[in-house]
């Protein structure tokens, strides 16, 4: 019993320890790594990915997977940019309406995603991958391959305005982490995610409408992807079909490295926060200490394996051979 407890404790805190060790490692090699300005840089690069990773966390807790994030991010970003410019192009006018519109677009794509998955009984990985392609295609159709610049000073203030050394978008991201945490721990829906992921049969037998929970989960994830899209556009001032690039790898890696188990029921938003920070600390730290990019990919790959090994061991405890 004691052994299991200590192992569980280890597994629970391992991601955070990895993060601290990484921070220590990079700081020893390059003290400037720990400067406020660099921490702000890491936060800026992490903020959009964090939103996307939060969204997919809920799906993974349910034991499903969502691979539609790249398409959803691109479509939300592009529609946001078109609407923003159409409505006057400044936050002080009507253009703020483009913000909720983008989130609505994310929700709709997520909803369709969930309905296709649940009602057509297509495995979530296939349904969401397909929806992702549809999204990327739609974004391309809307833009014709062009980039849309969003130059509004007020909107770009998310990046350029700083409080206590950190751009506003970082605080926005933190606010949404709290929203995610609230949903996870204080709402029925959040708890139902765990119920579905922990044992779908049991949840179903207990009278839970599993289909509804799944569809709502995908819809919620889509909304978080859209918030990620908004922050991504705020970060570089450009909305394009390529806005969604890399988010799939980044977010799933982050969720797994953070210790949320792929078979569901375990983990949550704090794990994801730590996971996203690990991935971004590595990305930034490698450049800061001067290691080439391909080493960075290799290290991330190894970390994913380590994370999965750790959590797989935890599961095998319940098996007796």
């Amino acid at each position: 019993m004691n052994g299991i407890l200590s192992r569980e404790t280890l597994v629970k805190w391992a991601p955070l320890m990895v993060l601290l060790i990484l921070v220590l490692f990079f700081t020893v090699l390059e003290p400037r790594f720990l400067s406020v300005r660099n921490l702000a840089r890491i936060s800026v690069s992490a903020a959009p990915a964090l939103m996307v990773a939060l969204g997919v966390t809920f799906i993974i807790i349910m034991g499903s997977i969502d691979l539609s994030m790249e398409g959803t991010v691109s479509v939300s970003a592009v529609i946001f940019a078109f609407a923003f410019l159409y409505l006057g192009g400044t936050l002080f006018g009507l253009a703020w309406l483009a913000l909720p519109l983008a989130v609505l677009v994310g929700a709709v794509i997520g909803l369709i995603n969930g309905i296709v998955h649940v009602k057509l009984r297509i495995p979530s990985f296939m349904a969401s991958l397909a929806m992702g392609f549809v999204g990327t295609g739609l974004a391309l159709l809307l833009t014709g391959g062009d980039r849309i610049r969003v130059e509004d000073e007020a909107f770009r203030g998310l990046l350029t305005e700083r409080w206590l050394g950190f751009p506003i978008m970082v605080y926005v991201a933190i606010a949404f982490v709290l929203v995610g945490w609230f949903i996870q721990s204080r709402t029925t829906l959040g708890r139902n995610f765990y119920a579905v992921g922990g044992g779908e049969e049991l949840a179903h037998a207990s009278g839970l409408n599993v289909s509804k929970v799944r569809i709502l989960g995908f819809m919620l994830a889509g909304m978080f992807y859209a918030v990620g899209a908004l922050l991504a556009v705020a970060r570089i001032g450009i909305a394009e079909t390529a806005t969604g690039n890399n988010f799939m790898f980044m977010s799933i890696t982050s969720v797994v490295v953070g210790g949320t188990a792929l078979w569901g029921g375990i983990g949550g938003v704090w794990n994801t926060l730590v996971g996203v920070l690990i991935v971004n600390v590595i990305g930034n730290g490698m450049v800061v200490i001067g290691l080439p990019g391909y080493v960075q990919d290799a290290v991330l790959g190894l970390l994913v394996i380590v994370a999965v090994v750790l959590s797989t061991d935890r599961k095998s405890i319940s098996f007796v051979k």
């Binding site: 970060r235 450009i238 800061v288």
Partner: peptide
């Protein structure tokens, strides 16, 4: 450092350069 012809990747690599 390679930035893979990609705007967002370039953004992150440049941030790292600024720290370094």
């Amino acid at each position: 450092e390679p930035a893979d012809w990609d705007t967002q990747k370039a953004n992150q690599v440049m941030s790292g350069f600024l720290t370094r």
